[in-house]
Design a binder for these strands. Structure first.
Lengths: 219, 219, 219, 219
DNA sequence: AATGAATGAGCCTTCATTCAT
DNA sequence: GATGAATGAAGGCTCATTCAT
């Protein structure tokens, strides 16, 4: 860690110019891992640098401060996540139930279940200390994600496929299990509790689309 | 600070009764507030002491370290939470739907909606750095809470009130919106998103007990 | 220097309360020495702490930052210097020549020739980087010192003892050799040039009070 | 940075002529500005390079280290200063009073009042940390300047134009106001004090050549 | 010759922890 | 029991210096 040359990484033979372009995302990738694993405060920049295979000073060539690195991690992770999510909704023409299932499952496959899932966990853990980033995340991610779900719900209600219900609350209820999955993946899994995401999601959809109560007993 | 070195909880050799009596809960109360607000690492013991109205040295009369204080906060906050939750189940004889609603709503009223709700948020944020506490929390709280929900679900399925479904996954699906509420209260509220807990819970119950799909279209 | 206990100072047996009062001036005294010797930027707080016989952290019990310490050094050194200087002028009733000589010589004996003389040197070296302190020094020291000299000159001119001349410029001309003495003591002495302060001051007074030109040749 | 390790000036083994030719004085000019303004330690080589319009690496093509650059700044600034000063004395045949006035005023016009005046300020501020440069400055500049003044004073005394007095001290007394002018220009002007150099010099000469005391009262 | 990305030693500052009173 | 002065290890950040291009 403190040896003059970084043994495992010194073998990188790419020309400097080639590496310079790739550097910022190498750094944010390393930082994402550590921020998610240890939290912002407990992550040392030495460790981020070491994981990225650079020296500590190099971090400051690309980011003005630890906090700026944190912002970059969130911003960089979110752009593709957003694009991927919105892509799936454009021009969908199946049932609204399938649409909802597609949105939620797609989120898990593209985001929650990948290393990007660490970002919502980061936001949850750190937003109190970084209100600016929290606001950014709300404006760029949460509100847009909720719009997708809102449109799907309203579409289903309008077509008579879904019962009428309080759409705004329902959005959050739909999201909650997804949130739980990332929380579980990045925190509670250390508790020893075991969740099988596909099975969990299947049950989520099952309850969501069919209801808990048996047919004859509905109120 | 480094988790591998954590002595197990029982390593404290001072007579337990003597210590418990003397340990002022003002200290853990102050610590809970700050841990929840700022996270473990960003909370300074000076601030905890100041909020409790004692000197910093006094903290060390009651807790061996910052980490021990953290453990005490979790332990102390969980005892009443546990008792309150289990109390509501004993000898319940209404419908299983009412039982479920009562359990979930009761949790919010007794725990999630009070300052104790900060504890799950703490566990979520810090469990990676405190696996021992995460384990403790799982064994003492999560597993017992899941047992309550498991029993309610199995009771409803056995009586034909509920459809048969994957009980273990369903437990987590039921819990997820509650988790979301505390996460919202202690983190995402800073994002600017607005959740109305009673309305959110009502929708949760509505979806849960009736299903999203209109009657005639059920698969 | 880095051993756990400070060997030469650990022998200090004064009670804590006694030492606490004395601490700030012990720290500023150590800092004055090093700031004067090395300059502000090149002075390490480790060295200041070591010279004062405390740990580095202790500095921060008394001063918020390195810059705050610097301000304290200047402010603390200046109060007695000011008092001493003004004391000498009150109620003086000899000749104005003697008054001038007394003021200048007194300044050297009370300030310039003592370790307080390092403060003007500090101001000269660092004022560009600390305009706030420079302003402070001007308002509290320079302007008051100039007032003393202005009064003495005007007194002498009014009485016919001195020729009429541009008083404001003359003040600075009177001061210049004193300034040179501290500059010499704290900087240029390292050049190898040798100045004998009493002899230098005697010549200063000689030229000042008698003029360079021989009597018969005066213009 | 640590003075004991300074290699002597002559340690540079590259052919001197080759090096001097290639060394762009734009670099030393930029460095002079910044050293004078901020001091040696607070001047960043990035800033020097930026002001000179080159990259930081280029500095190292011409100077082995920051300290070498500092030496070059002093050396380079002193050559013309020295030449200009000595030029004025050769073959002078007016009165000694005029000679003195010419030397002092000339120094201000050619050196002190130009950007070269920053160099004495630099020497004053940094000589403690660069004894080698201080020595160099003493040998090459101070001693030669003092020789000029010594000769002028001895000439005037020998001719009866000046009173007999302690020549060595008198030299420093003559220099002091000049020193004060550069100190004021590069440091104390930030204090808010206001000096008008021509008026100041006029008063200096007035006091010097005529004396403070009115004729009839001379001791 | 010139560049600028990369380095790593070093310093200011913080804060959990200790201990004399 | 309580205090708070003192400690010292650790981390964020800077910047002189190097070197591949």
């Amino acid at each position: 860690m403190t040896s003059p040359a970084h043994p495992p990484f010194a073998a990188d033979k790419r020309p400097r110019s080639r590496r310079k372009e790739a550097r910022p995302s190498e750094l944010t990738a390393a930082a994402l891992d550590l921020f998610v694993e240890k939290g912002f405060a407990a992550t040392r920049l030495d460790d981020v640098a070491a994981r990225a295979g650079v020296s500590k000073g190099t971090l400051y060539l690309y980011f003005d401060s630890k906090e700026a690195l944190f912002k970059a991690v969130v911003e960089e992770g979110i752009v593709p996540a957003l694009a991927a999510a919105e892509q799936r909704f454009a021009g969908y023409d199946g049932t609204s139930a399938e649409l909802l299932r597609g949105l939620l499952l797609g989120w898990w496959q593209q985001i929650g279940g990948t290393r990007l899932g660490g970002i919502p966990k980061l936001i949850i853990s750190e937003s109190r200390n970084f209100p600016e980033i929290a606001q950014y995340y709300h404006d760029r991610v949460i509100s847009r994600g909720r719009s997708l779900l809102r449109a799907a719900l309203q579409r289903g209600i309008a077509s008579g496929e879904f019962r009428a219900l309080d759409v705004e609350s329902a959005i959050d209820v739909l999201i909650a299990p997804l949130l739980m999955l990332v929380v579980w993946r990045y925190s509670l899994c250390a508790c020893g509790n075991d969740i099988d995401p596909p099975r969990f999601l299947a049950t989520h959809f099952d309850i969501l689309l069919n209801g808990l109560l048996a047919d004859g007993r509905k109120a």
